[in-house]
Computed example of a mutant assay.
Amino acid sequence: MRIGLDMMGGDFAPAEAVKGVKLYLDTVASDVHLVLIGDEQQLAPLLADAQLDQSKYSVVHSSQIIEMNEHPTKALKEKPQSSISIGFHLLKNEKVDAFISAGNTGAMMVGTYYSIKGIEGVQRPTISTPVPREDGSFGLLLDVGINADCKPENLAQFAQLGSLYSQYILNRPNPKVGLLNIGEEEGKGNLLAQATYPLLKENKQINFIGNVEGRDVFTNKADVIVCEGFTGNIILKMAESFYDITHRRGINDEYIKKFDFESYGGTPVLGVSKPVVIGHGISKGGAFKNMISLAQQMLQSKLLEKITASFSNKEA
């Protein structure tokens, strides 16, 4: 199992990426071989200081970096030797089994669309976020940003993708799926919600429980909550602010600590045929370690094979 990691992506790269690699190799027992993609001159002293087991990683040199403010498509075309471009090349050619980056999110999405095949039957890939719940567990919210405008069919597919992710990664047997809405009753909401509800109700591959409201997001009423990316991203950013506010005010609360994005690392792109995990631009060592663990879990659980089979069955 080979996992590629962009060592140059993120505000604190490559130092924090190396810290994440060390955390992972020191604390997670696995047969994973890490392929570290980055500038060898910058990486060499950091890797030497980290005193890593050299049999557990290899380095692939990249001479270019796609900066956070660059236009994604243009940057990928003009910087073929960037760490992101090389990462997708390795993934496409099966030199790595998964690819992780905390770099330019747009470039990661463009790279995913053009380098990797989508799973047949999936109209649009989606990204999700774990949602801390008061009982200590995590729910799942999707989409959280890459699909600001959606059709009802898109939300129905997000529900199916999220249900499989919740089942095999978050270990929720028969996860409960809810549609985010302004009321619980069937028929509530805007045109999108009203048209999506019957599609979810008809889907035999999910455990649809009906509409859920904003007050239900951080409870265990639903394991998977579905919405379009505009609403989902607002909820995600608001939830992240909970941690920032309490941290600034010196409030120490175990539940609020779970809102620190470092605790889950990054988000996978669901609906494509190979594991791609996108991290926050301000990721530090703990987030990188958790992103590697997530990619490992996706591979070990054969999540993408299960998604492929699920959509194939639906078509049949």
Results as ranks from 00 to 15, higher is better:
169 I>T: 09
247 H>F: 14
37 I>C: 05
232 G>T: 04
1 M>F: 05
278 I>T: 01
242 F>H: 04
224 V>R: 04
109 M>H: 01
96 V>W: 03
243 Y>W: 09
180 L>R: 08
202 E>M: 15
23 L>W: 10
120 E>Q: 14
144 V>N: 05
152 P>H: 13
191 L>T: 08
160 Q>A: 11
156 A>D: 07
82 S>L: 07
272 V>Q: 00
25 L>Q: 01
258 K>M: 14
112 T>C: 06
260 D>F: 14
164 L>M: 09
14 P>A: 05
61 H>T: 06
24 Y>H: 03
117 K>Q: 10
71 H>R: 15
197 Y>N: 09
126 T>M: 11
145 G>N: 04
142 L>F: 02
181 N>M: 09
307 I>N: 05
185 E>F: 04
226 V>T: 04
218 F>G: 01
207 N>M: 11
126 T>Q: 06
315 E>W: 06
42 Q>H: 08
45 P>I: 13
2 R>I: 05
124 R>C: 09
228 E>R: 13
248 R>D: 03
86 I>R: 06
310 S>M: 14
189 G>I: 13
238 M>F: 13
181 N>V: 12
1 M>D: 02
174 N>G: 11
164 L>H: 04
250 G>Y: 05
89 H>V: 04
114 Y>H: 10
85 S>M: 07
287 A>S: 07
188 K>V: 10
63 S>N: 10
143 D>C: 06
11 D>C: 12
164 L>S: 05
209 I>R: 05
216 D>L: 12
197 Y>R: 10
104 N>S: 01
237 K>E: 04
164 L>T: 06
11 D>Y: 12
204 K>N: 15
162 G>A: 05
201 K>M: 13
176 K>A: 07
304 L>D: 01
306 K>A: 09
149 D>Y: 15
119 I>Q: 01
181 N>A: 11
65 I>A: 05
28 V>P: 00
58 S>C: 10
168 Y>F: 15
33 H>M: 06
52 L>P: 02
267 T>Q: 04
44 A>T: 12
92 K>A: 12
250 G>F: 07
293 S>L: 12
8 M>C: 02
181 N>C: 13
109 M>L: 01
195 A>M: 10
46 L>F: 08
210 G>T: 09
152 P>E: 11
185 E>L: 10
227 C>F: 12
17 A>R: 00
151 K>P: 03
285 G>Y: 02
158 F>W: 09
10 G>E: 01
237 K>V: 10
39 D>N: 12
65 I>T: 09
219 T>D: 03
69 N>K: 13
59 V>H: 03
61 H>C: 07
171 N>I: 11
67 E>H: 10
